[in-house]
Design a protein around this nucleic acid. Structure first.
Length: 487
RNA sequence: GGCGCCAUGGUCAAGCGGUUAAGACACCACCCUUUCACGGUGGUAUCACGGGUUCGAGUCCCGUUGGCGUCACCA
């Protein structure tokens, strides 16, 4: 049988990173077996819906390269793929009434006040458990209430005795007492189905074979199981995925800057990298593998039996490392196209495109995010304020006195170089010669030059490369300023 | 509080009754080097606890502890 999975988000905003991973796993499970991956919009909560949120879902899926085979935008044999449109078709109500006929569901007319009186607070948490009050209503009463237009919901009639066992592909068999299960609402008083109901109906109607979702649904799955059984439908395979948490093992929050896929992209993470990274949060390809891999590799190697049971901490440090690996792997032209904007923004005064290319090459192996570029190269604009202590370097045995000597000595050398010869190779040759003649090692020689030129102890390139990019005039100005500072 | 789930270094994790308990990130040291980064080499650090079962337990069972989830006319 062909595998069919689905991603069924509700359009409430940006795509949460846990959601993205669920979508990825659902996609991978289907594609690994050559199956179908569908997109369904679960917009049954009219209050929470957000303008433009559906577009965010389309964009995210596109960016992530998770192509769906059926969905609202491309159609398919099981449409419509938007639940609110299915409500209009009367799909859910039809099935709910069928259940009522069979005594597996019932009308409930309880007021908010009565419901409130049922609620108890334990440890500051509200606990609800319906008492089946309306299950005992007579047929006459129900008809009368309905005829008078009294608001109602339809509830599932869960057995009060016995147990329900369902099988999850990751967690195995899970058994719960039916008595602990609430008579959940299937149809709300506005006529819309709840997630709990619509999800089951649509998964069945759309032929979903593997239900992939977060493990927060583990607790309500027995009730879904009861629903499938009530209809006599085949129960799909359940695949509940463990949670992704922040470093305090709590739900991912905005605070740590890793709240959504879009946020991450805006921060400069590459989409392929984010996908790669989240795939590894709760799944591994096998015993021996390279952690950097692409979607094709995942499709080929995705075995959902290897999904982990325990939740994983989202470690932004490792994500950054991985992003730097992705950046390093970019061929230079691609990298240049992506980095150019950042370099030009950081260094508006550099007009020479050769220089911009050179700077791009320099920074490629040194950044984790494109936004790192600015801080790396801003000294080209102007020397930042720096402490004279920078001229001290214990490894090369550099100090301010030697520095002043070296800087003063090389000034005439630089002055003698023709503008057209002011390039890295030529400069390195001439300065090396000076160093040899005076018995100064290269690392000692270059230290004060770098400091005078950049005001930093580390730069993305060698001192002579800075000279070339700065040009003769600016270089000499900066060296002179260095000498003055040391006097 | 009821119910359920989970438990290997700081983090992601391999392991599926016998291993010197992989690997990656982070961290540290050294090498390379025109500084830093890259790259290379090496190092520190893990089986939550207590009982069983077994010749032998990170691996199986029970309990404890801890964490998480859930208990909505939200999904």
């Amino acid at each position: 049988m062909k595998i069919r999975t689905r991603f069924a988000p509700s359009p409430t905003g940006r795509m949460h990173i846990g959601n993205l991973r669920t979508a990825l796993y659902a996609y991978l499970i289907a594609k690994h077996e050559g199956g179908d991956f569908l997109l369904r919009i679960e917009d049954t909560d009219t209050k929470r819906e957000l303008e433009g949120a559906v577009d965010i879902i389309y964009d995210s899926l596109k960016l992530a390269n998770l192509k769906h085979d059926e969905g609202p935008d491309i159609g398919g044999p099981c449409g419509p793929y938007v639940q609110s449109e299915r409500v209009g078709l009367g799909i859910y109500m039809k099935y709910a009434k069928q259940l009522v006929e069979e005594n597996k569901a019932y009308y409930c007319f309880c007021s908010d006040e009565r419901l409130d009186s049922l609620k108890q607070v334990i440890n500051g948490e509200e606990i609800h458990m319906y008492d089946k009050h309306c299950l005992n209503l007579s047929k006459d009463e129900i008809d009368k209430n309905l005829a008078s237009g009294m608001p109602y919901v339809i509830r599932q009639n869960v057995p009060t005795e016995g147990t329900t066992t369902f099988h999850d592909e990751i967690y195995g068999d899970i058994t719960v007492e039916n008595a602990t299960l609430d008579d959940m609402i299937l149809i709300k008083s506005d006529g819309y189905p709840t997630y709990n109901f619509a999800n089951v109906i649509d998964d069945h109607l759309m032929g979903i074979t593997h239900v992939v979702r977060g493990c927060e649904y583990l607790s309500s799955t027995p009730k879904y199981d009861l629903l499938y059984k009530a209809f006599g439908w085949e129960i799909p395979k359940y695949i509940h995925c463990p949670h992704i948490t922040d470093e305090t093992h709590k739900k991912l929050s905005k605070r740590s800057g890793h709240s959504s896929y879009q946020d991450l992209l805006e921060q400069g993470f590459l989409s392929d990298c984010v996908i790669n990274f989240v795939a590894l949060l709760g799944w591994t390809p096998g015993e021996q593998f390279d952690e950097i891999f692409d979607l094709d590799y995942m499709i080929k190697n995705f075995n959902y039996k290897r999904i982990s049971k325990s939740s994983a901490v989202f470690d932004i440090t490792k994500l950054k490392w991985m992003n730097s690996e992705y950046i390093k792997k970019l061929d230079i032209d691609t990298f240049y196209n992506m980095a150019e904007k950042y370099i030009v923004d950081a260094l508006p005064s550099i007009k020479n495109s050769n220089h911009i290319h050179k700077i791009a090459t320099m920074v490629q192996s040194r950044i984790e995010l494109f936004s790192d570029i600015n801080d790396l190269v801003d000294f080209f604009n102007k020397v930042p304020e720096y402490d004279i202590d920078l001229y001290n370097n214990k490894k090369s045995k550099c100090d301010p006195v030697i520095s002043k000597q070296i800087l003063s000595d090389i000034l005439p050398i630089l002055n003698n170089i023709d503008d057209s010869q002011f390039n890295n190779d030529e400069l390195f040759n001439l300065l090396s010669t000076y160093g040899k003649e005076n018995n100064i090692k290269t690392n000692l020689l270059m230290w004060p030059i770098r400091v005078a030129l950049s005001g930093k102890e580390s730069t993305p390139c060698g001192a002579t490369e800075i000279l070339e990019i700065l040009g003769k005039k600016e270089s000499i100005n900066r060296i002179e300023a260095g000498v003055a500072k040391l006097s």
